[in-house]
């Protein structure tokens, strides 16, 4: 398996915030912390587009590079996780992250900034899989349960895809071929390349 990735199809996202709700509910994410959010561009104007954004589990993650206490690690599946027992809540990762993924609970005494919290690709953290300690610190570990991230599996329009980067790219490519547009977007070919995993059934292209 390649690296786990999210891919949000801006042509399909309807800004329902179902992914945000699924994430909050699945992991009991505290008030004020949003591991995932929906960003809308040109809101209310023709051509409005929405994209669901969370940690993108970068292959060369800047948060890992800047962390002064080396609390981040990458799993065999390419998921970027961190150890909350090592994190000191300094916030360097939030400055380094281009997606605004690192979140800091601020509802403690005197608005104290707590330890960093972010999307785990529903892969928990460095505690025994499925344990109470893991849930309390990082939320559910759906990957270890044989499931995909809750946000992607709950997405009503399947705009948000999650899984092996090669497979989700193939699924997205199939859609682009079916609707006849999308591949003209700058950088699309560079980012998603050529099919490598088969990508399932080929669509009937309308004539």
């Amino acid at each position: 398996m390649a690296r786990m990735k999210f891919l949000c199809d801006a042509e399909r996202c309807i800004e329902c915030n179902g992914c945000v709700t699924a994430c909050k509910a699945e992991h009991d994410v505290p008030w004020g912390v949003n591991r995932r959010r929906v960003v809308t561009l040109n809101d209310g104007l023709p051509g409005e587009r929405s994209v669901s954004v969370a940690c993108m589990h970068c292959s060369d993650a800047p948060c890992m590079a800047v962390c002064p206490v080396d609390c981040f690690y990458r799993t065999d599946d390419g998921v970027v996780l961190h150890d909350k027992d090592v994190c000191i809540g300094c916030g360097y990762c939030s400055y380094a992250c281009p997606f605004g993924a690192p979140q800091f609970p601020t509802n403690g005494t005197f608005g104290l900034r707590g330890k960093m919290d972010k999307c785990t690709f529903c892969a928990g953290g460095p505690e025994p899989h499925g344990s109470e300690a893991e849930f309390e610190k990082y939320g559910r570990n759906r990957l270890a349960e044989g499931k995909l991230p809750s946000c992607a599996e709950m997405c009503s329009t399947k705009a948000l895809l999650g899984g092996d980067g090669d497979v989700v790219s193939d699924i997205f490519r199939t859609r682009v071929l079916a609707r006849g547009k999308g591949s003209e977007v700058w950088g699309w070919g560079t980012a998603y390349g050529r099919p490598t995993q088969g990508g399932g059934a080929q669509p009937e292209v309308k004539k």
Binding site: R74, T75, D76, V86, H129, G130, A144, E145
Partner: peptide
């Protein structure tokens, strides 16, 4: 760094399953 290693605790691969 090898997968699953950090300055803190080690993590098991996901295919080991959850309890």
């Amino acid at each position: 760094a090898p997968a699953g290693t950090t300055a803190g605790k080690a993590d098991k691969p996901a295919y080991q399953g959850a309890a």
